[in-house]
Simulated scan of single mutants.
Amino acid sequence: MDRRTMLRAAVVGAGTVALPFTAWSAAYGAPAQNAPGPYGPLQPADAHGIQLPAGFTSSIVARSRQVVPGTSYVWHDAPDGGAVIPNGAGWIYVSNSEVSAAAGGGASRILFSSTGAVVGASRILSGTNSNCAGGKTPWNTWLSCEEVSLGRVFETYPLGGTAVARPAMGRFKHEAAAADPVRQVIYLTEDETDGKFYRFLPTTWGDLSSGTLQVLRAGSATSGSFTWATVPDPDGSPTVTRRQVSGAKTFNGGEGCHYADDTVWFTTKGDNRVWQINLVSNTYELAYDDNLVNPGAAPLTGVDNITGSTAGDLYIAEDGGSMEICIITPDDKVSSFLRITGHSGSEITGPAFTPAGDRLYFSSQRGTSGSSSGGITYCVTGPFRR
Rank of each mutant, 00 (worst) to 15 (best):
P238G: 05
C145D: 12
A133I: 00
Q184I: 06
Q214S: 14
S371Y: 11
A352D: 05
Q66D: 15
S373T: 14
V185H: 03
Q33K: 12
S130I: 09
R366Y: 13
Q276H: 08
Q43I: 07
R199A: 08
L314T: 05
G296K: 00
Q184G: 06
S246I: 14
T222E: 14
I124N: 02
S336V: 15
I340F: 13
T329A: 07
S58A: 13
R109W: 07
N272A: 05
G49T: 09
A83E: 10
I316M: 01
R123N: 15
N291K: 15
G40W: 01
T115M: 07
E318R: 05
R3L: 14
P138Y: 10
D2F: 02
V274S: 01
A229N: 08
H258G: 03
A9Q: 15
A101C: 12
D46M: 09
R65H: 10
S108M: 10
T128H: 06
T71G: 06
P202W: 06
L7I: 11
Y315K: 02
A133V: 02
V240N: 12
R273V: 02
G88H: 10
W228T: 11
R242E: 12
Q365G: 05
D331F: 04
K196W: 05
G40S: 04
V293W: 00
L314S: 00
G270N: 06
Y187S: 01
G161C: 11
A248Y: 06
A356E: 14
A287S: 10
G302E: 05
G254M: 00
W24R: 14
G195F: 01
D80F: 01
A298E: 00
V182G: 09
G90E: 06
G90M: 04
V264I: 09
S364C: 04
N272S: 13
G105R: 01
S108P: 10
F226H: 06
Q184F: 03
G120P: 08
T227R: 07
A18H: 12
L201K: 15
G70A: 01
P79Y: 01
G350Y: 02
G224H: 07
T267F: 01
A317M: 01
R123Y: 08
D80S: 06
G81F: 00
W91Q: 07
S309G: 15
H48C: 07
D304Y: 03
G206N: 07
V11G: 10
G211F: 09
F337C: 04
R385D: 12
V118T: 09
E192A: 08
V84C: 08
Q66S: 14
S100D: 12
G170M: 01
A89K: 13
R65V: 10
S64Y: 00
C379I: 11
A165D: 11
